[in-house]
Design a protein around this nucleic acid. Sequence first.
DNA 1: TAGTGGTCTAGACCACCGT
DNA 2: CGGTGGTCTAGACCACTAA
Lengths: 279, 279
Amino acid sequence: MPDMMASRPAPTPAPELQVAHVSESASKLASNPSFSPLYRQIKGLITRSLQQGDWKPGELIPSEADLARRFGVSQGTVRKAVDELAAEGLLLRRQGRGTFVSTHHEERVKFRFLRIVPDAAADGVADGARPLPQPMERQFLECKRTRASQEVARTLGIKVGESVTQIRRLLLLAGEPVVYEDIYLPGPAFRGLTAERLESYRGPLYALFESEFSTRMVRAEEKLRAVNASAQEAQLLRVREAEALLLVERLSFSYGELPAEYRRGLYNTRHHHYRNELN
Amino acid sequence: MPDMMASRPAPTPAPELQVAHVSESASKLASNPSFSPLYRQIKGLITRSLQQGDWKPGELIPSEADLARRFGVSQGTVRKAVDELAAEGLLLRRQGRGTFVSTHHEERVKFRFLRIVPDAAADGVADGARPLPQPMERQFLECKRTRASQEVARTLGIKVGESVTQIRRLLLLAGEPVVYEDIYLPGPAFRGLTAERLESYRGPLYALFESEFSTRMVRAEEKLRAVNASAQEAQLLRVREAEALLLVERLSFSYGELPAEYRRGLYNTRHHHYRNELN
DNA sequence: TAGTGGTCTAGACCACCGT
DNA sequence: CGGTGGTCTAGACCACTAA
């Protein structure tokens, strides 16, 4: 497996580089005001390779020395580019082994976007990245292809009436229903997604999206509100009608700031809370 | 003002350094397994100077070259330490001018911890750091010294019954009451805080804490829940009784992970929402 | 043992800022 | 103009991993 990488064709062969005027003079390219620093250009080239799928989630990318040779820059410059990508969560460095494309399959990063935690577990030191201690059960209530409403279309940046896949599901923690959410996925990329596939898959949804639909969620924005439960919502989450629920709207982005998923979730915060860190 | 800095006594004079065995041999110190990399030690020394108040919020710290000389390391090593501190929001670099201690007085960072935004303003590109567009009005309902309840004591890491300052206030955005919160501050540090001082102060509370109580909030953790409004809460926020409100509990830390403020806020999310970014 | 990322250095030049 | 942070290079050595 690792040696496959050595023989993999260069994803962005050196001749393609638009930074040729740099390496020969070793001078900064910023005499042209529209130019970004070299390491940002390198970062852009690496990002493009990720977008294009030259290196897939979980795979090893070429070594820093290798990339430096390909791009005709010093290893330090590549290092700074990779540093930023690692900080943004796109790459994962492992000393002695190499640099890998981040994936939602990793134990460490599972449920990276799910910020709900049981009240008991939240005290003490910061520990946001810890997986949920209790078992999580999922119930898929619905999975259908439908047409984008105005709200969904606007959010996902597609046209009203375009095909989307809608998933409705319930998450239970320690047997208690905690999250009830609708998930909207743009049509083309998620064509083959069926209820059966959802049922049979073990692991986070985002891992499934990555493996089978070539869509990796990189970043997300959430809007939180408090709302009163409707009769139907109350029944599903086993709370009283009009009880306060946390409404979480999430827009997830794939590579290149592409909106790739919209979620509208209701969280029962009786015994759980949404945890956030401010810096 | 800037030249004051040049004559300021060295906050951590070079002889104090515990890293002496490094500079002479230029070899890594990690042969001792309990040691962290040089740049982290430098980072620790700078952090200590910030904690001790050697450099105060808003002030210019010595140049990288200067620090490198003092610590007996290369500028690149200092740079990496400062990079991390800047990424954590403790320092602020300004090209051509120098590196400054972060402060809650800066326009750019005002309301850094207040994540509520009007629904209308939230669409489009990521822009979390933007100040609120509308005017914000504050009403201080109460400011008294009291004794720490069990909850407050546990959260702030003090003993039950110890003296704390409690502030109760209302925030109005565009004339609409949006936040109703209780703020608890540990007794010793905030002795002189009075209702009059709160009323007369312009600018964020955290700026006041910084200027007059030598307590800079560096980081915070929040727990969010949805709750039904009590009669009193409903009246103050001008919503119906039992209407859903967003409960935000915030624990803020000063330098050295010291818990320095506990807040319990109720947000009216009828026309505003809590905005969050996931990476 | 070979290869990888991690640390550290020294030195060059650039962009930006205030005087 | 001098001083600051920002970029880039080249090279050394270390720590970790896997074969």
